[in-house]
Design a protein around this nucleic acid. Sequence first.
DNA 1: GTCTATGTATAAAG
DNA 2: CTTTATACATAGAC
Lengths: 212, 212
Amino acid sequence: MEEERETSTMTCLTPKDPLQSPNMLISQPKKETTTQTPKTTRGRQKIEIKIIEEETKRQVTFSKRRRGLFKKSAELSVLTGAKIAVITFSKCGRIYRFGHVDALIDKYLRKSPVKLEGYSGDNVADEESRRPWWERPVESVPEEELEEYMAALSMLRENIGKKIVAMGNDRTVEMVPAWPINVMGWKPPMDMQNLESLTDGITRCRVGQNGD
Amino acid sequence: MEEERETSTMTCLTPKDPLQSPNMLISQPKKETTTQTPKTTRGRQKIEIKIIEEETKRQVTFSKRRRGLFKKSAELSVLTGAKIAVITFSKCGRIYRFGHVDALIDKYLRKSPVKLEGYSGDNVADEESRRPWWERPVESVPEEELEEYMAALSMLRENIGKKIVAMGNDRTVEMVPAWPINVMGWKPPMDMQNLESLTDGITRCRVGQNGD
DNA sequence: GTCTATGTATAAAG
DNA sequence: CTTTATACATAGAC
């Protein structure tokens, strides 16, 4: 059964060869048999890694590949004992999660403090503005400022994380950058590059060694 | 160059065939040539998805598969325009991240409120205990309570997220559970099952449609 | 890190 | 959803 494989694998994969004509595969009569197995599909086709414009096709791909990604995550998790969280925001607005995202986010935020940028909260009523913004009751924050307020509160929280780290947990290990991979011919997608970089303050951090 | 492929691919993959003797592959002389290409490796071997006990092997696998996972994440991201964040806590304590984790965590926390459980803060000095705990200066929180304080602050923040949702952003889309995949014969790893479930309060949420 | 052989994911079609 | 054929990931050895 495997006998012919050897001959084939030698010719099957030649990654250096750019494959000049991908679709000539179906037009070639391979055997002398006249009933040459009508080849129901062309099999998995090579695709370029760029945005799939066609809506339906994109959704199918998203669905298939998200499954695959989560399966890989699960396997990696089991094989190596690593804890993994994956969050996916689909283009049309759905969130898909893998792993105990909330628990791991919590763990992550505690161990990876980021820079604090001030939130002034100028627009609140006078009677509240005497207190620092983060001590004011949530209700006094104008609705249109809520998102900004939350971001600031988030950073406050992360700052506390920094304080905790400073308090003695600051044994360090290296942290890889957000885009560690360097696939040939591949670059980070534009929309990711454009996101604000909250990671500027992150260089090194430590997570617990025991019970990890 | 591709001509021989057809003959080979027909015999290459027969997933239904359990492959009764995996190591007979190397002992079989495939051709009549006496110099039968000594088969330098056995190729990729099938492995069971369970913890790899051997330290070195586990680290190699972690490293290879984490790369693979990040590459898949990048491809999915580019192909479908999805935004993806992956956090990996290796067994020995390293954090590896993919994507703009912090920005997406922030987005995630804003859109996915979880239940608030009280943090009483009983141990603070008297002069501060008149204010609600979350309005007290961080410095007044005893060091040993900091972690608990942070968790509570986190939940407060998420509660604000809930308020935002209630304020008119509550168009809903389905959220999948943390373990959506159902691979045959596969179950979530024990250590993930044991993590506290902060997701109890999460059922549905909405993320922005435009500019997403 | 690289290489090889093979297991697995998945594009296209039903 | 399932099937098919093929592209791609990766286990094992260096």
